[in-house]
Design a protein around this nucleic acid. Structure first.
Lengths: 229, 229
DNA sequence: CTGTATCCGTGTTGATACTG
DNA sequence: CAGTATCAACACGGATACAG
């Protein structure tokens, strides 16, 4: 069929699945293959290494991850970068345009979490837990600006809440108003399950530093969408 | 691996691809298979028949369409409905929750169309053309409220522009301020390519009814996002 | 005519093992 | 650690046949 000589490495760009000028179809051609969007999600809060990604995406196999990364790279959604010595490792990071995909994740989350099939006890990566906060920030909350730190083992984040904006970056939470040291599932139970802070602390699932009242104000800024039917 | 006896009809619900509490992963389990989102897109502006869908989704095969429809039905994203006599045909229509997926399409479109790989000359279905108008409505436009009708052969729509809202429904455009009789590609050239109305009319690609000045105001309410880099 | 089911060739996916 | 190679299983798309 193709008049073109077959190349050893198939060009990811000529693989057009849908022949459609529609933006949705185009997005699906870019990132509609299995795993692609989840890889992008894991990169939304900063560069990651190959093995980080593999560990965060339970079930993906190495060859598929390689293929997806290569395709996303060719499409200019992400880049591969060699870290300066002495680290000297390579990481994958989103391009500015890749970062602009975040509204897709927010729209998908807000829609899908309304299903009664959502199971909040399933595991969650630190990145998706943090991104979910941004997606589920109540537009009508009235909390004052504050900073909150999160420690999920080695993964640490600093978030700055200010009005309808929640800025998130990786980093050791040094000077923050409140700091949670926990795992992602417990954070979900606290923030979305409205499980009492004290109960989680008593079970040893969460440690809070900072003002307890401020922490409760923070938690109340977030809300899962209501289930359908 | 599975301790369960295999059923003749595999339950679409037990097919969990990603084991992840993240909303994005859940959305991808619901609608991440090939074609699913495009089927939903085609239903966003009203019920369609099996053969309508098949014709709108060039490349899908009948068995795949059947499988996707069944899965979306079980998930309560769409329903199958028997039209009253004398029509007596069955149609597929989104549930209210299915309709709530529209922000996903908007986010995907706005993101993907910024790629230089977007080819606006590819074919476009009437539904995606109309939906794109809603996605690409400039938030800062200052046009007064107006109604615009669209005829793409048998597919007819009425849109009501009012501030930042563009309501769209199927229907014969009877009492509208302006009416376009054209094909989707020409509409794209007019609205996003900013090709002059008169040029398209001269080529016989478009017929306008109503006030020409109003039509130009309408067209200027829409804008494609700028390409990256 | 509308929609569904079955068969089959092909390409994609993913688990395992392996290499620089 | 960061991938590559191999191979089996599955999903896809096309054709065809079937049912209302």
């Amino acid at each position: 069929m193709k008049s073109q000589i077959e190349t050893t490495k198939p060009d990811p760009l000529e693989n057009r699945w849908y022949n459609d000028a529609c933006g949705t179809a185009l997005a699906l051609e870019f990132a509609g293959e299995r795993w692609s969007l989840l890889i992008m999600r894991e990169l939304m809060l900063g560069p990651r290494r190959f093995s980080d990604l593999r560990a965060s995406l339970p079930g993906i196999s190495a060859n598929i991850l390689t293929m997806r990364l290569e395709r996303l790279r060719v499409l200019d959604i992400l880049r591969r970068r060699q870290l300066d010595p002495p680290a000297n490792v390579q990481v994958y990071e989103l391009t500015p345009w890749g970062h602009e995909a975040e509204p897709i994740f927010q729209a998908m989350s807000r829609w899908a979490l309304r299903s009664p099939l959502h199971d909040p006890t399933l595991p969650l990566t630190p990145v998706s837990a943090m991104l979910s906060l941004r997606a589920m920030l109540r537009p009508d909350h009235s909390a004052p600006p504050m900073t909150a730190g999160f420690r999920f083992g080695r993964d640490m984040f600093i978030s700055e809440l200010s009005g309808s904006n929640l800025h998130i970056r990786r980093g050791k939470p040094d000077v923050v108003d409140i700091e949670f040291d926990t795992d992602t599932t417990s954070l979900v139970r606290l923030v979305y399950g409205k499980q009492p802070l004290e109960a989680l602390e008593r079970q040893g699932l969460l440690t809070l530093k900072g003002d307890r009242a401020v922490a409760k104000v923070f938690v109340d800024c977030f809300e899962l969408p209501a289930h359908v039917s």
